[in-house]
């Protein structure tokens, strides 16, 4: 940093914050504080990694979907997750991050993804519950991010939220079908999947507010629009009536309507489990990262072949143009 730019920083910083306070967007080549850039790269990369790793738990069921209809839906959904990951890597790149470097950090375990994807999908009902609860929680988290102060991220989130709605509805419809037209065993599968995914879904909103030290700065920068606990409460309030309509019991004896607060009260989350899974000790952490690394390594020859083809092709077209010029 030269003396000149250093001297200009307070003015630039003030202009930057004023832009955000006026609810205008920050665009890629605007001046931004290093902390803002770093926070966003981390946030967007972590989000991108989550979409990419998020293909695995459900992708696991594509070959075993119970009907062609369900298989086509699941394929489209998993393809969407890949697309979401790519929109987000593209947004991260506008901040100066390098995509190959982000992939490297993921497969070397140096960057995180949402802890929810470290749980296994044990039955086909899990596909439905992931759509209903996990994508439902993701929508709660993501809708406010359509107003993120960083333009490319906000625009990516608009696309993603439009597509997530299909994800949630296909999951809920799948569960409805199992509950209303299924056998007793199938209804038990739905309840079992709900029991296993409920608490991890609540953990998706991150640690409680008193244990989330970066929240204040992120809110001032408008890269976060609501606190973790606010969003978690909103999700619980939305989900309880959906569970009733479905006919499943959410596995929390303390879950009860509180007329004074105008919200549902719910039990204490096992934050020790959350920390364990985030720090790498969940049921599937090693498997998820190993699978991603394998896919990357197995695809190396395809990337190499396409690069070689493009190089050869560009030489040829260059010659062709040259001869035309003559």
């Amino acid at each position: 940093m030269t003396a000149d730019t250093e001297a200009a920083t307070p003015e630039l910083e003030e202009h930057f914050q004023r832009t955000i306070d006026r609810d205008q967007r920050i665009e890629p080549r605007d001046w931004m504080p290093e902390g803002y850039r770093k926070t966003l790269i981390r946030q967007v990369a972590q989000h991108a990694h989550s979409e990419i790793i998020g293909m695995q738990p459900e992708g696991n069921w594509i070959t075993r979907a119970p009907s062609l209809r369900r298989k086509a839906i699941l394929l489209a959904k998993v393809q969407d997750e890949a697309g979401h990951g790519l929109y987000l890597y593209s947004a991260a790149e506008t901040l100066g991050a390098d995509r190959a470097d982000l992939t490297r950090k993921l497969i070397e375990g140096r960057q995180k993804y949402s802890s929810i994807f470290n749980y296994p999908t044990l039955s086909f009902a899990d596909v439905g519950v992931i759509g209903w609860l996990v994508d439902g929680a993701a929508i709660c988290n993501q809708v406010p991010l359509c107003r993120s102060s960083y333009g490319p991220y906000a625009r990516g989130m608009v696309r993603i939220c439009k597509e997530e709605s299909f994800h949630q509805r296909q999951g809920y419809e799948l569960l409805m079908t199992m509950m209303r037209r299924g056998t007793e065993a199938q209804r038990r599968m739905v309840q079992d999947a709900t029991d296993r995914w409920w608490w991890p879904s609540l953990m998706m909103f991150g640690p409680p507010d008193h244990d989330s030290p970066n929240t204040a700065q992120s809110m001032a920068w408008k890269v976060k629009r609501h606190t973790n606990d606010e969003l978690r409460q909103r999700f619980v309030d939305m989900t309880v009536p959906q569970a009733e309509a479905l006919g499943v019991t959410l596995p929390d004896p303390e879950l009860a309507w509180n007329p004074e607060r105008g919200h549902y009260d719910f039990g204490e989350i096992d934050w020790d489990e959350f920390k364990r899974v985030v720090s790498g000790d969940g049921p599937c952490n090693a498997q998820r990262v190993a699978q991603r690394r394998r896919a990357h390594d197995d695809g190396a020859w395809v990337r190499g072949a396409a690069t070689a083809y493009a190089a050869k092709h560009s030489d040829t077209s260059h010659d062709h143009r040259g001869s035309q010029g003559l």
Partner: peptide, 11 residues
């Protein structure tokens, strides 16, 4: 609408 990586224009 966004950006992507590819080996050449057609891809």
């Amino acid at each position: 609408v966004g950006s992507l990586h590819a080996a050449d224009g057609e891809m």
